[in-house]
Write a protein that binds this DNA or RNA. Structure first.
Lengths: 222, 222
DNA sequence: CAAGTTTAAAATGTCGACATTCGGACAAAC
DNA sequence: GTTTGTCCGAATGTCGACATTTTAAACTTG
């Protein structure tokens, strides 16, 4: 049987981790709304496992920031205030800056070629909101995964997942996608030409631009 | 009835969180050595609780990076390679820079006064390794806790705890303490005079200097 | 005596049940 | 009509036990 996952994919055999992945995807994809209560007995029944496994999965998701657990009051999908969203984007901007600085300092021609392929895919996806969000996540993930620090990569992607719902929202306008693509082009240019300082600056600006767009939407929605 | 704890102190009543705090302190303080196995049954007996509570505490510590859990093989105190230590310090340097930038942008005279009190305590503690490490942690914690983002503060302090063992080691020489104090003086100056860019620069330099010192020690020990 | 195999002890993975606490509904008092 | 107190249902906290996997010691064999 062919393994659909690449060889670097860390296969966790334990039940709780598998369940955490599935619930986490449901939250990031928007199937579970913020504030929704996640009752252990319901989840245990729907997944066909015991409450102990569900509890452990919920702890994992709490660490990823997708779920909030209150003692004696159970778990719910994390609800972020506008200020918390702002904080997350600023942290992420800094860490993305660090990752891109390191990537620029160590980029090989091979990595450069892959970056330009991903940039081209981004350009092609500009017309459509969903596909652009997907391509944007792909190139973003490629950058941090090749920065030479698994810890840094996991951290950045964790924050990206926590705000994925809002990022998608902000990319629904063509104007915003155009701005995003222009900034990605600058960033990729700095990366393939091995300019660490410029790469850090552009990476920060890229994430902070998303922050501004998202916050405008959030304040307009109130 | 008077509440002995300040209003902002989040009191966790659950057993696992209390146990996680106690085990975590033992790891940070060096009572548990890196690589040491943490058997659930042993811990359960020594704390007088069931394995379920221990398991949850270990998950919490895993999220804090102090413990590493391998499926089917149990938990052990996290062992860091020199490269991982370097990564952690670089991430921490960036986040500390962000925190201090924000603190400088919003510092009130009250905060400025407290900073100078903590700096004076640091100066007094220069002669002794253990007391200097303690004072250094205190002013560092004050900075990030007053940067206006609990998420950022928890993150920075989490990384600081993961490398606390090595930071203490590096502060054992008087020369290193002198350098550290000089950099703290520059940083506090930038903070109280509300210079965000300078504060970020000095904060980064401060942590990166610790990184260099620690890495020299680690490579010398091999 | 060394190397490989078998086997038993020990540790983790998972489960179901009991104890405790929280939230809301209903009723009584002001 | 609003508020306060009580009670009941439901959800989480905690526990002990069984199933599965790992580990290492004992044993056999070349």
């Amino acid at each position: 049987m062919a393994d659909p996952a690449p060889a670097t994919f860390e296969l966790y055999a334990t039940l709780p981790s598998q369940i955490a992945v599935r619930i986490g995807r449901a939250i990031v994809d928007g199937q579970f709304q913020p504030g929704q209560k996640l009752r252990e007995v319901d989840l245990a029944q729907s997944f066909g496992v015991s409450r102990a496994s569900i509890r452990e999965a919920l702890r994992t998701l709490e660490n990823e920031g997708l779920v909030t657990i209150l003692p004696q009051r159970g778990a719910q999908v994390t609800t972020l205030t506008a200020e918390e969203v702002r904080d997350i984007f600023e942290i992420r901007a800094n860490l993305m800056g660090l990752a891109c600085q390191r990537l620029a300092a160590s980029a090989t021609p091979t990595v450069g070629g892959q970056l330009e392929t991903l940039l081209k895919a981004l350009r092609t996806a500009r017309d459509e909101s969903e596909s652009y969000a997907h391509a944007s996540l792909a190139i973003s993930e490629f950058c941090v995964r090749n920065a030479g620090s698994k810890r840094l990569a996991d951290l950045v992607l964790s924050f990206a997942r926590q705000t994925a719902r809002y990022t998608r929202l902000s990319l629904s306008t063509a104007e915003r996608r155009k701005q995003s693509y222009a900034m990605w082009r600058d960033l990729v240019d700095a990366l393939v030409n091995r300019k660490p300082a410029a790469a850090e600056r552009h990476a920060r600006a890229l994430v902070l631009a998303t922050r501004d767009s998202v916050l405008t939407l959030l304040e307009g929605a109130d």
